[in-house]
Amino acid sequence: MTTTADDSAAEEAFEALLTGRPVPFEAAGLAAFTEAVRASATRPGRPNAALAELLATGLLTDQSEPSTRTAGTDGSPPARRGARVRNRRRFAMIFPALLAKIISAGAVAQADTGAGVVVVAVTGAGVVGVLPDPVQDTVASVVETVTPLDIEGGDEVAGDEVPGEDQTGTTDPGTVPTPVVETAPPAEPTEAEFSAETWALEGPDAYPSFGAWVSAGTHHDVAKALGVRFGELVSSRAREKGLDAEELAAAGVDLGELTGATPTAAPEAEQETTVATRETASGERGSGGNGNGNGNAVAGSNGNAGNGKAAAGNGAGSNGNGGKGNGRD
């Protein structure tokens, strides 16, 4: 027969168990049950395919497969062209994902990653043999010391036995180290201001219209910030959304102009190398000038509103600020 007193005692014992306090012997069975329940919560479990992909990639999904709207029909393009389209789209997704991972990593991991990218870039250039002689010799010596590869410009004469795929393998994007989050806490991943990475990651869905997204990207010069071909990035997004040339034109987007106006990037096969080289070359290219004009004039006065004008710079950015006119009676 269970009484109210027994219920109260059991509840008190239960609360004591939950808070880690000792319990009377009469509650031994309840204590054993509680302990066994907690002990059962040790298996991490097996995530299903969807969750496993999410755990591996985060919310930055790789939409490398062409949509059904862009898939070839009777007049389908050759397979080679399809592969190029997929490569461009993969690049358009993977590059922002890589940037996001770097941004979300800690300072140490960022330094490691940056150093890794530079090493890959320099190594790749060294293998090709396009570095200046002193640098070429140094790179060749280092690479030959740590790898079985023979590189032109090293102490040894390059032999024919080195397979080409081994050389190209040194520029494999897979060798780019990923951020080691276990060794350093992550940096704050979000920014209050406009972010080119966010612009690329969120895409046109985060903007009122496709045209607004393109306009924001143009205004903030994300092509330079991301080191990508702006026109192709826009084109890729347009294909994903199934927008044709007419719809783009209606949205105020001239794809041909965007494609032609953006700086030429390196071939796709050297995308990772391009990432590093752009970092160093960006300082040599001039950015467009910015002009601001401010003018204030009190009524009845002879103040003149200022005008600002700036010409597009080539080699160095130029800024023009209009004079400020103030007048008083």
Binding site: P47, L54, L55, T57, G58, L60, K101, S104, P186
Partner: peptide, 20 residues
Amino acid sequence: AGAAWAFETLYRGLAPTVIA
């Protein structure tokens, strides 16, 4: 922000009790 490593951290911390 969608970081995979953070998903994994949360999953490893909470999944055993949820599955149990």
